[in-house]
């Protein structure tokens, strides 16, 4: 089934959240109104509670691109999405386009995972394919990588994604709040949200691996 149709069915089944986005399907005759979940209540206030209105999906890239104080959000899984806007969408294709800008490939990755067709990429495979100065990232020890997961992943560190990968095929992640996180924000039930999934370590994680590998090498030589 096309991704947009799957999305429509998910909304009908009661899904109303993805990451920091809230979907409302019961406002006027609109197919869906998307806001930051903390702004959801303002949609029903006269004048939309001061939310800036965007019709159609095209503003999603700009909204997803920068935090409220102007920082570039290159990792879209970060829980620092700006507030103060609402997006009015009239069909499932527009919703799909908007979600692919807020959470790139997030819906498709979720559907593939649900259908058991997602190819997850373990950390060692990801690091091996780096180029230039990022090749060094592959030198990080398993212990160093496990430590980084605890240090930078999961909602305690502002990442809303559930990690699917392991260090390698034989080395699962150590148990931690980050490795246990389901990708669904508390206190929602599983059938209320599309979980954000991390099928491969992000470029921020790779960059941190590079720094940690460098420190490990310096420690060994000193």
């Amino acid at each position: 089934m096309p991704i947009a149709s799957e999305l429509r069915n998910l909304l009908r089944s009661g899904v109303h959240r993805m990451g920091e986005l809230e979907f409302q399907t019961n406002v006027s005759n609109h197919f869906c109104i998307v806001t930051h979940w903390q702004d959801a209540g303002r949609v029903n206030v006269p004048g939309f509670g001061g939310l800036a209105r965007h019709d159609g999906p095209s503003a999603a890239r700009d909204l997803a691109c920068r935090t409220e104080d102007g920082q570039y959000r290159f990792n879209k899984g970060q829980t620092n999405l700006q507030r103060g806007w609402m997006m009015v969408l009239e069909n499932e294709e527009d919703l799909r386009q908007a979600l692919d800008l807020f959470y790139p490939a997030g819906v498709g990755v979720f559907l593939a995972h649900r259908n058991d067709t997602l190819e997850v990429e373990n950390l060692r495979d990801k690091l091996q394919r780096q180029s230039g100065m990022y090749r060094l990232a592959g030198k990080i020890s398993d212990a160093g990588a496990q430590q980084l997961v605890r240090k930078i992943c999961g909602p305690d560190h502002a990442c809303a994604r559930r990690i699917l990968w392991q260090i390698d095929a034989h080395t699962p992640l150590d148990d931690s709040a980050a490795s246990r996180f389901s990708g669904i924000p508390a206190p929602l039930a599983e059938n209320e949200a599309i979980p954000l999934l991390c099928r491969e370590a992000c470029n921020f994680f790779v960059e941190e691996c590079r720094k940690a590998a460098q420190e490990e090498m310096q420690d060994q030589t000193s």
Partner: peptide, 20 residues
């Protein structure tokens, strides 16, 4: 029509899952 990147999201490998 989709975009994908080497240093941004979606990655080239993730892009496969966006396409019908």
């Amino acid at each position: 029509v989709h975009c994908c990147f080497w240093k941004e999201e979606p990655s080239m490998r993730e892009a496969f899952y966006m396409i019908d």
